[in-house]
């Protein structure tokens, strides 16, 4: 199978990062897995260091389409898995509280995932929702 030119040098770094994660977790006693070979194979170490990740201009409608739109259909304009958000009677603080803490069985808690700035932007996005023009 073909490999990509220049990829070889990346492998040792990945292994090093994975090893660090392994050592850290072992030190915390988080693993029941026996030590020794075949060594660190936990999944997840790659996600902390995305290659080429650059600060992105923040666009709240993109954020909504990234993580919210599956349940709050049509960009939050329509009932779906989650309720319609357009025209909600909740206060700003109630909306932010629900996003932070979620609701068991219905909505995950996003505390820690979104910044306060992002939470306020989501509230503003919800407040500005209007019905889409018919196509």
């Amino acid at each position: 199978m073909r490999t990509i030119p220049g990829k070889a040098s990346a492998a040792p770094l990945r292994i090093f990062v994975a090893s660090l994660a392994w050592v850290t977790l072992c030190a915390q006693g988080a693993l029941a897995q026996p030590g020794g070979k075949p060594g660190p194979m936990q999944s997840g170490s790659h996600a902390s260091a995305p290659a080429g990740a650059q600060p992105q201009p923040f666009d709240v409608s993109q954020l909504f389409a990234t993580s919210c739109g599956w349940c709050h259909m049509n960009g939050g304009r329509q009932d779906g898995k989650g309720p319609r958000l357009m025209g909600t009677a909740l206060s700003d603080e109630q909306i932010m509280s629900r996003i932070r803490t979620g609701k068991v069985g219905a909505m995950p808690a996003f505390s820690g995932a979104f910044t306060e700035e992002q939470l306020r932007a989501i509230v503003a996005y919800i407040r500005e929702l209007k019905p889409l023009a018919k196509q």
Partner: peptide, 26 residues
């Protein structure tokens, strides 16, 4: 379904989040 595809950026920090890439409805 109907959908509106949007250019999204994956949320990786501090915890990974869903990366859907669209608003949609059934």
């Amino acid at each position: 379904m109907d959908l509106e595809i949007k250019k999204t950026t994956p949320v990786l920090e501090p915890m990974a989040q869903l990366n859907i890439g669209a608003d949609f409805n059934i």
